[in-house]
Amino acid sequence: MSTATTAPVDRLLYTPDEAAEALAIGRSTLYELMAAGTLKYIKLGRCRRIRRTDLERYVASLAPLPN
């Protein structure tokens, strides 16, 4: 019996926990970034979601370390 593997779903929206994991930062740090307006998010009812494009924009805005 063979099992077919499927590719992971390319998400458009992430929960704060998922976004923190994707960025390899702590959950509280992510909430601090959201509260400061550094990382944009949307509210769906009482839930917060972060767009994939906003995660990418945040990472692109990070300055590289000097050599």
Rank of each mutant, 00 (worst) to 15 (best):
M1E: 13
S2W: 08
T3L: 12
T3R: 00
T3C: 02
T6Y: 03
A7H: 05
A7N: 07
P8K: 05
P8Q: 05
V9E: 05
V9S: 00
D10L: 13
R11I: 01
R11W: 06
R11L: 15
L12S: 10
L13M: 08
Y14T: 03
Y14D: 01
Y14Q: 00
Y14E: 08
T15W: 10
P16E: 14
D17W: 11
D17Y: 01
D17K: 06
D17G: 08
E18D: 14
A19Q: 05
A20K: 02
A20W: 04
A22Y: 14
A22F: 14
L23E: 01
L23S: 01
A24N: 15
A24Y: 11
A24T: 10
I25G: 07
I25H: 11
I25E: 07
G26V: 07
G26K: 15
R27M: 00
R27T: 02
R27W: 09
R27A: 04
R27L: 13
T29Y: 06
E32W: 00
M34N: 06
A35W: 01
A35L: 06
A35K: 15
A35R: 14
G37K: 07
T38N: 15
T38H: 11
L39N: 02
L39I: 09
L39V: 00
I42Q: 11
K43M: 11
K43G: 09
K43H: 12
L44N: 10
L44Y: 07
G45V: 04
G45L: 12
R46W: 03
R48E: 08
R49I: 02
R49Y: 08
R49L: 06
I50A: 03
I50K: 00
I50D: 12
R51L: 11
R51D: 01
R52E: 10
R52K: 15
L55S: 12
E56C: 03
E56F: 00
E56K: 07
R57C: 06
A60K: 15
A60R: 15
A60Y: 13
A60W: 13
A60C: 03
S61R: 01
S61N: 10
L62T: 09
L62D: 02
A63I: 15
P64D: 10
P64T: 08
L65I: 05
P66I: 00
P66L: 02
P66H: 05
N67T: 13
